[in-house]
Design a protein around this nucleic acid. Structure first.
Lengths: 139, 139
DNA sequence: CTTTATGCAAAGTATTTGCAAACGT
DNA sequence: ACGTTTGCAAATACTTTGCATAAAG
């Protein structure tokens, strides 16, 4: 059946591949950019928002997606190389102020910041705001 | 009077120095870290939350403070060198996952990210999560 | 007298949880 | 039968606005 790829994917991550999760994952695979909870909900009109929310939360926990906190809203994008134990797929994100799309700058490494003495780094969120290539082309 | 410093400060920024704004600013001057709207409200129990909110918004507009969007909450910190026209005081921020304090890493320059072709940079938010020096000392 | 700021109340937005029913094994 | 997931409803948390009054220039 059509969902086999997603099913295997979830099993490999030790996530029970339920119908809802497969739908959410399938949608995420179809997205080129990070999407918000609302966007997923709109894409899956019959799905309950809190169920989607919990699917995304599970996905994040098991290293399937990473979340990006924008001004008021959280977006989610598929991880390339993360596992539940180690979130290795770290990169800056770009938010277009015109079309509000959020793009993973996967090819750009997070800079090595030299923290002050006795500070311990755990995670980094680097969000760059500006105008994306498409909007620049229009303007 | 005691508020003269704050009063001059606001006048120099072309902000009318009202009583409320002076109180908010005075509190901000007393803070070593970025503070949330709730924190300002707690520090000024007789002040209305929406008034504080609007003061902070005005301050941000005129380059007095910058805001940092954390997981769920916005914090504000005084700018060192900004004006209403140009927000030059850009730096990463550090959020302690233990004590939830947010510290301006003013001495650290934002890295120069090489964006893909046709992308235009406007602003950057770089939030580093970890354990701060004080919490590390305790642990 | 006109403009701006304030306080109160309430709306708006997004996230998160409680609980009972449904599901999969 | 069992633990997990789902759908619905509602709570929570935070931000933001409308409006009438008050204050300032």
């Amino acid at each position: 059946m059509a969902l086999q790829k997603e099913e295997l994917f979830l099993k490999n991550k030790n996530i029970k591949p339920t119908a809802m999760r497969l739908l959410v994952l399938q949608y995420l695979f179809s997205c080129e950019e990070a999407v918000s909870l609302n966007q997923v909900e709109e894409a899956l009109p019959n799905a309950d928002k809190s169920t989607i929310f919990r699917s995304l939360k599970t996905f994040e926990e098991f290293g399937v997606v990473h979340s990006i906190r924008e001004a008021t809203l959280t977006k989610y994008a598929l991880c390339k190389t993360c596992t539940a134990e180690v979130h290795t797929d770290k990169h800056p994100h770009f938010h277009c102020n015109k079309c509000d799309s959020t793009i993973c700058l996967s090819h750009i490494l997070l800079p090595q910041i030299q923290l002050p003495e006795h500070f311990k780094l755990q995670e980094q969120e680097y969000l760059i705001h500006g105008i994306c290539d498409k909007c620049n082309a229009i303007a």
